[in-house]
């Protein structure tokens, strides 16, 4: 593909991601609606969410106005084609077309960076995933600020939570994070959790869990059981969609285990709103295919 086509493909990826929920997330929201009491605020909120998503998908307009932090995951085999410059050009183009809000502010001067680039934005990760040169995937995750503000990191032991350095301590941290988030992060949320790591790796790994499909369980049996237990326990808190009460406070919980130093035991919770926008495109042989 020529440079212009690559930029068009990436701009289309941004527009698709911003306007269409992935099927697994939309399906989980539809199941949640069936669980809620008819006529309750929870049912009304979920009906609004589902109606909104159909409309945004039909018109290809942003399904949430906070088009979020853009994180691109690019196969390293595409490094010479999908360059940082190409990504930035595509983001500027998508912004002009209304797929993204002007959402990037210089923290020091307070001035808007109208092209949505600069100062670390958008985030671009190149990953080694074994594709031959010139072929590979570009995945994009959009995460809004309201949910990012609800993400937290704990250092165990934590006496106020009665949380020790074990899986039950992890459970208490995740419950506390869900309780503190109430409806502020736009519940029902999806929680990515990292156990261990240093602080930076914890946040990165917790966020990466949001790429796993809703309903999939960790290959680690203990973590898979804890994921399932936490979904049930958090939903028993009754916080509900947008914090107005109800049976669905989270759609899923994803946990990953990392190594840690003997001195540290971090538990990191990435709170993602219901508007979990992720999509990927495969580029190769001069063509593109949505995944």
């Amino acid at each position: 593909m020529r440079k212009k086509e690559i930029i068009e493909t990436l701009a289309a990826l941004v527009a698709e991601t911003s306007s269409k929920l992935p099927d697994d997330v939309a399906g989980a929201l539809r199941r949640a609606k069936r669980r809620e009491e008819p006529g309750s605020p929870a049912a009304a909120v979920l009906a609004t969410i589902l109606g909104n998503c159909s409309l945004a998908a039909k018109n290809t307009t942003p399904l949430c106005q906070d088009t979020g932090t853009l994180t691109f995951f690019v196969s390293s085999s595409l490094r010479r084609i999908v360059t940082r410059e190409a990504v930035e050009d595509a983001v500027a183009l998508a912004t002009e077309r209304g797929a993204l809000r002007r959402n990037c502010i210089d923290s020091v001067t307070g001035v808007s960076r109208d092209a949505n680039s600069g100062g670390g934005f958008p985030v671009v990760h190149y990953t080694d995933d074994g594709f031959p040169a010139g072929e590979g995937d570009v995945a994009l995750l959009l995460k809004g600020g309201g949910s990012e503000n609800m993400s937290r990191q704990y250092s165990l032991p934590d006496e106020t939570l009665g949380a020790g350095r074990d899986l039950d301590g992890v459970r208490r941290c995740v419950l506390d994070a869900a309780f503190k988030a109430q409806g502020f992060g736009c519940a029902p949320g999806i929680l990515g959790v990292a156990v261990g790591g240093d602080r930076a790796l914890g946040y990165e790994t917790a966020k990466l869990q949001l790429l796993r499909p809703v309903g999939s369980r960790s290959p680690d049996r203990a973590l898979a059981a804890m994921e399932k237990r936490l979904v049930e326990e958090i939903n028993s808190l009754g916080i509900g969609p947008m914090g107005l009460g109800g049976r669905t406070t989270v759609l899923d919980v994803k946990i990953a285990g990392l190594s840690r130093l003997p001195a540290s035991f971090f538990v990191t919770v990435a709170y993602m709103c219901w508007a979990l926008r992720r999509r990927s495109v495969h580029i190769g042989g001069g063509r593109r295919a949505w995944k």
Binding site: S19, V45, G51, T61, D66, F184, C186, M242, G243
Partner: peptide, 28 residues
């Protein structure tokens, strides 16, 4: 979205106003 604190709740009562929760993210 998310609600406001007791000072706002008191002002709503005093002045005759309400706080309405819109559904977060339902931008379209």
């Amino acid at each position: 979205k998310g609600g406001m604190d007791s000072r706002t709740l008191e002002a709503l009562a005093r002045c005759g106003a309400v706080y309405v929760q819109a559904t977060g993210g339902a931008a379209a």
